[in-house]
Design a protein around this nucleic acid. Sequence first.
DNA 1: TTGTAAGCGTTATCAT
DNA 2: ATGATAACGCTTACAA
Lengths: 339, 339
Amino acid sequence: MTDQTDLTDRVVTADDVATAAGVSRWTVGRAFRKDASISEKSRKKVMSAAKSLGYLPDLLAASLASDRSNLVALLCDDFDNPHKLLVLERLSRVFREEGWGTLLVNMRDASDAPSALLAASQRRVDAAVLNGTWFDGRVMRAALGARRVRKLIVFARTSESPDTISICCDDVGALREIARYADDRGYRSPIFVAGPDTHSAILRRKETFLGEWKARHGRQPPCIHVDHYSIPLARARVREALPGLAAARRPDLLVCENDALAIGAMDALRHDLGLAVPGDVAVIGFDDVGLASSPAYDLTTWRQPLDAMAAALVDVLRADHEPSGEYVFPGELVRRGSA
Amino acid sequence: MTDQTDLTDRVVTADDVATAAGVSRWTVGRAFRKDASISEKSRKKVMSAAKSLGYLPDLLAASLASDRSNLVALLCDDFDNPHKLLVLERLSRVFREEGWGTLLVNMRDASDAPSALLAASQRRVDAAVLNGTWFDGRVMRAALGARRVRKLIVFARTSESPDTISICCDDVGALREIARYADDRGYRSPIFVAGPDTHSAILRRKETFLGEWKARHGRQPPCIHVDHYSIPLARARVREALPGLAAARRPDLLVCENDALAIGAMDALRHDLGLAVPGDVAVIGFDDVGLASSPAYDLTTWRQPLDAMAAALVDVLRADHEPSGEYVFPGELVRRGSA
DNA sequence: TTGTAAGCGTTATCAT
DNA sequence: ATGATAACGCTTACAA
């Protein structure tokens, strides 16, 4: 038996505002919606009553009733990569600008991805944005099985599944141009530094570079694989791998799958192997993280078109229908001192 | 008029599971709660029915009914600081481990903070964790006014308001020890590199260092202020500020309020001013971001006790009552090559 | 241990 | 333009 007159510590509800404004509860709701058909007079009355009572619509109740949560899940892993911070900042910002809340879900590893997706679906997120490296086809299927995730968008990498939307940088075009640039600058014995095989294959950066170089010079450059996109790990792997190469295969350039690998590689070259960058070995990265422009690294790299990608993501999220396919954006080479 | 027998694309609800399992809807609910009193037999029946139907409890509806959302809002700004990535990863991970969702709210600037807090409160978050630099007392008051935010926790800095909980590193103890270390190592003319005045005052790192140094040597070291905790900005400010100092005040050490400032300072020293670190000028930072251990910087710094701080945060969030006060943890000096 | 009634605060839908 | 009805899917009582 709730006493309507006892307002102590009770949450202010639309009914309270309605009573205060002398209108119905539904009119209060309309006043707070953009598109609703309501007279200016009513809206004013409602708004002033709402203000004096300190009323704010309850998004939880609204979500339940409307079956739209205005929540977007952002599923991430790979927090070692400094590029992640750029993405998190940008996406959480544009989501908020669009009126969506950001549900950040930290996927620990590949096996964790399906459960992360379920966690999101239990909150009826309007969409799930996957920005990570460690999920695979299984995740996609789990996601599509979770009926409450209406939209599944793979951000910053291509998707293996045809049913999903993916928004990414044109990796193939990028690596072609990087190969051309390396060739033009006179480098002749590059090595490609790649991430873990599974993810590397999806990015298609490695195969593109290797293929393009082979087309130009008839031989495929060697590769170094790093198990994780982490700066210290890349450093360790490059330190181990380089001295083992026959002298004839000693590289004059390391083309790296991303900046984390590139920075780790530079650390190894300079501080473990005593080589000068770019004097002895040049380095090219990918992402253009903040550090790439620091004078300590001054890294030639590829800038992902984050503006365009974020804008495309918003468009896709806004769309009423279920779009699908790939949205690919070009990006640009950022020439600095390292190559 | 919903047709109960038409299951096409309908969300599976507790009622469906109840029917399938031959129990009541409430028993289904109990089966999914940890503490509920339910017979093992019923639970098994329910769970197998749930599994075969693909049922998962709807957290939205649960939140509305129970008035607990199991959502924690994480209000952040200062995404330029690489330390933010450590915090985001850690907190989103422990929240998930505890069964809480993370609502990431990106505060653009100081004026944005109150509205960010309201956005969180509209989702009935169980708690709001503030991890940022740009909010001030006004935000606190706005937050406490928002009745639906039950707990307000300031993370990684002290709070100005006595009504809030704060979990932070012992900045005062840290800077005392840094001053002692600098003194012991023979540095005699340090400069303190601080962030924006408002925030700097709250951290108390600057005043602690200055005070401690004055107590030891009778004079207060000069300061350089940077408007933002950003690496490039710190670089620019140090580049401008250092040459202007009289030769007698030329520093042999820069003590920096955090690693972002320290890294920017090192860039300026080495690449703009042609000075060797630590040969000509030593540098000390604060935070121990990933970059600090890179050989390019090899930064002596203070490691915030993130483990302990995250654990304390969980305890505070778990607590039924409303704890308050400051939870302070010590951290440790990480000695590397830069000082 | 299990079932029932009464909400939680909103919105979709229809009626006026 | 506004009001009324019936959900949305669950949980907290409390009764059996």
